[in-house]
Structure formats: structure tokens, C-alpha cells
Nucleic acid binder design. Structure first.
Lengths: 348, 348
DNA sequence: ACCGGGTATTGACACGTTTTAATAAACCTG
DNA sequence: CAGGTTTATTAAAACGTGTCAATACCCGGT
């Protein structure tokens, strides 16, 4: 009894049964369908559970039942606060149902996405919420064929016989930003896009162009597009050089970034060159992450209901798990323009 | 063949064995110790695996072996970019070893921490990296007794016969910030702390006070402490009122925040009142998250090696898993002061 | 031809749980 | 109190895998 108690032989359902003087099956019933077992024996079993400090073994459990009680959440980048907020929504909702969330990170790499999906299949996860790296739905279909249903997040463009999906209307978001800038009198707008293969980036651009067309102007004249390699502040800062290229005369009057991180990077890059928003250039972001309200000037941005997005995705997944007859739903939220200090009327 | 292929009966190791004309045991060997099986049969088995699209069942696997191949990572707040970065370090390192990371979020609540720990025990996780909500090590010891070893993160104050730990020297960090402010001539410093029960907050304060004492002044005179409920920007913004209380004469000359989020909130709160750093008040943060470099003025802060922290924790855990004779190590990183624009010499 | 000794493979069992069909006990009802 | 019905419990059979002792096979040496 000198040192701390060592690792003891794990106690199983059988030990509990022996202690309580009942059969293993009864213990299982107490644990899973308490109403089927008589009050007195139930209490006896519960006491044995406490005394032995029994903790159930989910391997055995899910081996027998063929299904585990954890769900996967596959995300493009843990580091991005947008996803963190979504993750909170997913986790809270899953927690209410007693499900554990396994957070996987694809880091925007198709190979890592595939590894993660395979892992979920091996674990026989109950389901998954997935933000795919690209438009390729093969992984998703494969996973479903293995018996793991998935809900798509932030991918409104896939046909809904594949899976449920939850997204925010990117076209509307692009238009909202575009109209705002047009109303302020801007006639040369640069769209700072992320990698071209991301659907979100493309659709927001289309929205922007649509709002320009709506105003009677020619999108090809007004909108210029610049791509960055990644969706972070560093890329935004670097891109400023290219944004400003062409000199003060042809310089854009506004920059619409597909992501707040990029936008904040642009603000910083401008500052380093002695310029500033909105005096020299209006800047609009997207997402409305925490950061957007904290920088100076406050960032005008298109807000997405991040937490609700995660929550809705999980709810859709839950309904697919519970309902026997299920038909896929496509849920689409509306974004909302949040005006702060980084945009202002154009002064020639 | 009209619609998509439905969910088929899951294929197991036995099906593969049958197909390859071999016993289940051999298939298992091919999967786990390929060197023990003859070249020709191995290829035959591998072909069967491909043809049947076999995916192994980790429930059966870990039921038999008594141990799963995933590790837990329990953090205080997924939303905090500091933890996100740590998570990346943990995940990358675990991935190299073929381990999956289950990310759990305690949201700084002891009850949720306990639930998460129980979950890890039920899953028979291979191990865990844990940032505890408070100094209570009971949960951790219980988990270890269940056979799940844990590495402590950001808790340098526990005795090392409990577990390995990785941390950053909070005392040194507090001193670094304090010396910096003292060198700039500040004589009234407010320490903006998080909840009082967090060890990090307390130790950094001690460091700050030590640096004051070192300079020959009386810490009780110089340092004033204000607590906030949470470690986010909103709390920082709200706290500004209290920071400024007492009027311009007794107002502090510098504020040292225990966290960058708080510091950024303070910057914002100052701006709203027509004040600014460093002109009216110097501000120092802690962590050096992305954000710190992006706000204006850039935030002077105590940088922690976040990614390395996660990586080291995971490496320690791995060594504990692999080595048969293991003695706990306590690893401590050194923080580094990063000076930006939010601090300046005091001008009476 | 026989034996020794390695190598390749097999068969059977164990892991901890859930589940189903069967049994035992208790409770009605006429 | 017999017969029937509900309720409480049990025994045994899976679930898919890893392991290990036992077997079959092969080859070279005497």
C-alpha cells in the first residue's frame, strides 16, 4: 500500500452481474432499458456498478450493435475561427443526444480528407458532418455505402439525392456586398478570392457580378479577380501589392474579400503602405468572425450564422439517424450584411 | 442496377479469407504483421481485400486487443485560437504514428471535463492530452487507473509522479512583460486576469510582481488586479471601465492582460472612449495569437510556442505508450516577449 | 529414407457486450 | 383453483478481430 494503486484488471459487465447476484443480461438491461427491470434488482445492480466503479466498454458495445455512438466532424481547417464556431454548434447539439464528436481536420488536402473518411468507416461512426475539400462526392458516397450517413456543410451545390446539406446562400451574400459597394458609388471593385476550386469563392463572385449587372454596369468592366493560395491574413497582406498594381489612377475603389482573414490582411497591408480604409479604399470581408469587430476600422462584412449552421447540420443528421423513412433535405440560411467602418462613399 | 447500390452487408475478415482461400488468421497477419506471411499468399490476400473493398472494424480490433488507436485531446475552449494551434501540433504528431485524435471540449466547465474523461475511458483510448479546468487531479488519476495514460498541458505546477506535463514558464512570461513595462517607466500597472482559479493567470501575476520587486518598488503599490469572467475580447472591452476608474490621476499607465483576446478587447474599449494605446496607456497581451499582429496598433505580447507545445505533448505521450519503463517528464518551454506598437515609454 | 528444424498456415478460443427466445414467477379472471 | 396472461429474469448465441499453440509443409544433412 506504499505507492499509488496500480492498474487493476478491468471490470466488466460480468463482474457487476456476479456482485449483484444477477445475470449479465440483466445488467445490460439496467444500463440500456432500465424500465424493463424491477425496481429492487435495478437498485442492487446500480449499487454494484458504483462499488466496482464499472465503466462500460464501447468496443464491445458497438461491436455487438454494429453502430457506435460517436459522429465525425470533418472540417477544412481547425485554425479558422469560422470552423471553430461551427464546431461548437455541432458539438453542443450532439452532446444533447449523448453523442461524442470526433473532430477531424483535412487541412484542405484531399488526401487527408480521404484518410479521415476511412477512419470514420473503420470506427463505424454513427454519422458525419462533412465540409468537403472539393466538389468530388466519391468519398462521401463511399462512406454512405459503408453505412455511415453524412450531412454536407457549406456545399449547397450538390444534388440532394446524395445527402442532406446545410449552407448559406453565397450568391445572396455576394450580391449584398456588391449592392452595398455600388450604392456607395464604387465603380472599380476587386474581388479577392481564395483558391479557385472552392465553390464558396466562385459563387460569391457570381453574386457580386450579378449585383453589378443589376445596376446596369458591365461586370467585366467593373470587377477584377485576384486569387490567393490560402484563406488567411498573410495571403491577404501579400495580395495588396497586386491589388494596388496599376497605380492610383486604375487602382480599385473597393476590395471585396471572400473571407475576413483575407480582409484583415488587406487592411494591414494598406496600413503598411500609408494607405487606409475607407479613406483610400473600401474593404469588405465575409463570415463576420470575432476579429472583424475588433480591428480598426471595424470591418464591414457579410455575416454567416456559424453556430446555427453547425447546429442545423447536426440536427439534420440526427433526424436521418432516427427516422426510418428519410428523404434528404437541403437547408439554406440567409447571410446578412454587417456594415462597420471599413467602407464609405467614394470621393473622387 | 437501376438506382445506386444500397447498403450491403458489411464484409469482414472472414469474407476476405474465404475469397483468398486462406484462414482468417492469415488475413489478420497480412494486415498486422505482413512480414510473417509468404509473399505469394500475401498478394492473394491483398487482392481479395481490394476486390471486396474490405475496411477493418476497429470495434472488434480494440475489443480483442483491449486498446484503441485513438487518443483524446481535451481543451478548454475550441474557439480560442491558442488551443486551435496546439491542436494542430497534437494532430500532426499523432497522425505520423497512425493515431486518430478525438477532440473534446470542456468549455472550462468541470462537469463537461468529467463527461469527456469518462468517454475516453469507455473508448479505451490509447492515451490523452489534457488541459485541466482546475488544479483537481482526481479525474486524471481516475483515468490513469482505468488504463489510459494522460499528459498534462499548460499545467506546470503538478508533481511529476502523476503524469508527464508540458508547459510554458508562466512566471518568466509575467516577468518579461513586467520588466518591459518597468523599463518603459511605468509605475502604475493593472493586471487584467481571467477567472481566479486558472493557474496560468495566477502565476503570470506572480511573475509580474516579482519583476516589480526586482526593480526595488513595492508590488502592492504598483500592481492592481482586475478579474474578468471569461478570457475573451468582450470581457476585455467591458473591463476597460473598471480599469479607468479613479480618474486620469490614478489611472494606470499600463495594462497587462493574461490573454491576447482580453488585450484586444481593451484596445477596442479604449478606442470607444477616445483613448488609445500607447499614447494614453500601454497594453500588453499574452499568447501571440494571429490576431495580435493584425490589430492596430500591433499588440506587444508574450509569445508562447503553441504548435510546439502540442507536438511535444503528443511526443511525450507516444514515448509513454511505447517505452515499457517510463518515468514521467516535466517539459517547460520559455516564452518570448514580442514588442509591437501597443507599448511605449511613459510620458508624464 | 529418416530426422531435425525452421517457416507458413491453421483452428479455436477470448475479448465485453447486446439480443432473442425460453423459462420462471407472479398476477388476473371467471 | 385452473388456465391464461403479463412481468422479470436468464442462458446462450452472436458481433469481428487478434493470438497462440498446434500442425503441415519444406529442405538440407546424415
Amino acid at each position: 500500500m506504499s505507492s499509488t494503486e496500480g492498474i487493476r484488471r478491468p471490470v466488466g459487465i460480468n463482474d457487476v452481474a456476479a456482485r449483484a447476484g444477477v445475470s449479465p443480461g440483466t445488467v445490460s438491461n439496467v444500463l440500456n432499458r432500465p424500465e424493463r427491470v424491477a425496481e429492487s434488482t435495478r437498485r442492487r445492480v446500480e449499487r454494484a456498478v458504483r462499488e466496482l466503479d464499472y465503466v462500460r466498454n464501447s468496443s464491445g458495445r458497438s461491436l455487438r450493435s454494429g453502430r457506435s455512438d460517436s459522429v465525425g466532424l470533418l472540417v477544412l481547417d481547425v485554425t479558422n475561427p469560422f470552423f471553430a464556431e461551427v464546431a461548437r454548434g455541432v458539438e453542443d447539439t450532439a452532446g444533447e443526444e449523448g453523442l461524442a464528436v470526433v473532430l477531424l481536420n483535412s487541412a484542405e488536402q484531399a488526401a487527408r480528407q480521404q484518410r479521415s473518411i476511412r477512419l470514420l468507416a473503420e470506427q463505424r461512426a454513427a454519422g458525419a458532418v462533412i465540409m468537403p475539400v472539393d466538389g468530388d462526392t466519391a468519398d462521401l458516397l463511399w462512406l454512405r455505402k459503408q453505412g455511415v450517413p453524412g450531412v454536407l456543410l457549406d456545399r449547397g451545390d450538390v444534388s440532394d439525392d446524395i445527402a442532406c446539406s446545410v449552407s448559406v446562400d453565397n450568391h445572396a451574400g455576394g450580391m449584398a456586398a456588391g449592392r452595398h459597394l455600388i450604392n456607395l458609388g464604387h465603380e472599380r471593385i476587386t474581388y479577392l478570392s481564395g483558391p479557385g476550386h472552392l465553390e464558396q469563392c466562385r459563387t460569391r463572385l457570381e453574386g457580386l457580378r450579378a449585383s453589378v449587372a443589376e445596376s446596369g454596369a458591365d461586370p467585366d468592366e467593373v470587377v477584377r479577380v485576384i486569387h490567393t493560395a490560402q484563406l488567411n491574413a498573410e495571403s491577404g497582406e501579400k495580395a495588396v501589392e497586386e491589388v494596388l498594381a496599376g497605380g492610383p489612377k486604375r487602382r480599385p475603389q473597393a476590395v471585396f474579400c471572400t473571407n475576413d482573414q483575407l480582409a484583415v490582411g488587406v487592411l494591414k497591408g494598406l496600413g503598411e503602405r500609408g494607405l487606409g480604409a475607407p479613406a483610400d479604399l473600401s474593404v469588405v470581408g465575409y463570415d463576420d468572425v470575432n476579429l472583424a469587430a475588433l480591428v480598426h476600422p471595424g470591418l464591414t462584412t457579410v455575416a454567416q450564422p456559424k453556430y446555427e449552421l453547425g447546429r442545423a447540420a447536426m440536427q439534420l443528421l440526427l433526424s436521418e439517424l432516427h427516422e426510418s423513412d428519410h428523404s434528404h433535405a437541403r437547408l439554406r440560411f440567409a447571410p446578412e450584411l454587417t456594415v462597420r467602418g471599413s467602407t464609405a462613399a467614394y470621393r473622387p
